[in-house]
Lab assay of single mutants.
Amino acid sequence: MQGVVKVNSALNMRSGPGSNYGVIGTLRNNDKVEIIKEVDGWYEIRFNGKVGSASKSYITIVN
């Protein structure tokens, strides 16, 4: 499943599904990500070869 980031500035990509996990990357508006699965309001995603988590509130699913 594919998604597109929708933010005003930037979205942190984290090492796990929650804001208490470390930041491993930064996503910008309109970045395209691969959604692997949903976990507690977060998506596990793949972006630029990295796997991490980002809040699903800022990612829109595209077909």
Rank of each mutant, 00 (worst) to 15 (best):
S19T: 14
P17V: 03
I59Y: 00
E44R: 07
V5T: 03
M13T: 01
L27K: 00
V51R: 09
N63F: 11
G25T: 09
N12L: 14
N48Q: 13
Y43C: 04
A54I: 15
E38N: 03
I45D: 00
Y21I: 02
E38T: 05
M13G: 01
N12Y: 14
W42C: 04
L11W: 00
Q2G: 07
G41R: 04
S53L: 14
I61H: 04
K32S: 09
G49R: 05
V62E: 10
I45H: 00
N29L: 09
G16Y: 02
G16R: 03
A10V: 15
R46S: 10
K37D: 11
I36N: 02
V5Y: 01
V62D: 09
V51W: 07
M1H: 10
S55A: 13
Y43R: 01
V23Q: 05
V39E: 09
K6V: 12
N12H: 14
I35H: 01
G18A: 04
Q2L: 14
N63G: 13
Y21S: 03
N29F: 08
S9G: 15
I61Y: 04
N12Q: 14
N63I: 12
K6P: 01
A54K: 01
L11E: 05
K32F: 12
S9I: 12
R28T: 08
K32N: 09
G18T: 00
Y58M: 09
K32R: 14
I36C: 07
V33Q: 00
F47C: 04
G49H: 06
Q2A: 11
S55V: 12
S55K: 15
V51T: 11
V51L: 11
A10T: 14
V5R: 01
I59R: 00
T60Y: 14
G52D: 02
V62R: 06
S15W: 06
M13E: 01
M1W: 13
K37T: 10
G41K: 05
W42T: 01
T26F: 10
W42D: 01
D40L: 08
T26C: 13
W42E: 00
L27R: 01
K37Q: 11
R46F: 11
E44K: 08
D31V: 06
M1F: 11
S57T: 12
S53P: 02
K37S: 14
I45T: 00
I35M: 02
Q2D: 08
Q2R: 12
G3L: 05
G49N: 09
I24C: 08
V23F: 04
S15F: 06
V7Y: 07
L27V: 03
W42G: 02
S53D: 03
A10R: 14
L11F: 05
R14L: 11
N8P: 11
S53W: 15
W42I: 00
G22H: 13
A54P: 02
N12C: 15
R28L: 11
S15V: 07
M1C: 15
G22N: 13
K37H: 09
K50Y: 09
S53C: 15
E38G: 04
I35G: 01
N48I: 05
N12I: 14
N30P: 03
V33C: 05
Y58N: 11
I45K: 00
S15C: 10
G41M: 07
G3S: 02
G16V: 02
V4A: 04
N20P: 03
L11A: 11
Y58P: 02
N30T: 05
G18H: 04
N8G: 12
R46H: 07
G52S: 03
I59M: 01
Y21N: 04
K37A: 13
G22W: 08
N29H: 09
D40T: 06
S57M: 14
V62W: 07
K50L: 15
V23K: 07
A10M: 13
G25Y: 07
G41W: 05
V62I: 13
F47A: 07
V7A: 11
I35R: 00
Y58K: 08
G18C: 07
I35S: 01
T26V: 14
Y43T: 00
L27I: 05
I36T: 06
I61T: 06
M13S: 01
D31Q: 08
I24F: 00
Y43Q: 00
N29R: 09
V33L: 04
N20S: 12
V7C: 15
G49Q: 06
L27P: 01
G16Q: 02
V23P: 05
M1E: 06
Y58C: 14
M13L: 13
V4L: 11
R46P: 00
V51E: 07
R46I: 14
K37E: 07
G18F: 01
V7D: 03
R28Y: 13
D40N: 13
G52I: 03
N30Q: 08
N29M: 09
Y58D: 10
F47E: 00
K6T: 12
I59L: 03
D31G: 03
I36E: 02
N30D: 10
S19K: 14
I35D: 00
S55I: 14
E38V: 08
G25K: 05
K37M: 09
N48H: 10
G52T: 02
Q2H: 13
T26K: 12
V39G: 05
L11M: 11
K6E: 06
N12F: 13
Q2E: 11
S9L: 11
P17C: 08
N63E: 13
N8F: 10
M1I: 13
L11Y: 05
Q2N: 10
I59H: 00
S53Q: 06
K56A: 12
V5G: 04
G16W: 03
K50F: 10
I36A: 03
V5S: 02
G16M: 03
R28G: 07
I35Q: 01
P17Q: 04
M13H: 03
V39F: 11
E34W: 14
S19F: 15
I61C: 08
R46Q: 08
I59F: 05
G52N: 02
S55P: 15
N30E: 09
G41S: 07
K6S: 10
D31M: 06
V4K: 06
M1Q: 11
N12P: 15
Y21H: 08
S15H: 05
V5F: 01
S9Y: 11
I61V: 12
N63L: 12
I35F: 03
K37P: 01
Y43L: 06
E34T: 11
G41N: 08
R28D: 06
T26G: 02
V51N: 07
E34C: 13
L11T: 11
V23A: 05
V7N: 07
E38H: 05
V39W: 11
V5K: 02
N8L: 12
V62S: 09
I24G: 02
E38I: 07
N29K: 09
I24R: 03
V39S: 09
Y21F: 12
I24N: 03
K56N: 05
G3Q: 02
M1K: 12
R46C: 12
Y43G: 00
I36R: 03
A10W: 15
W42N: 01
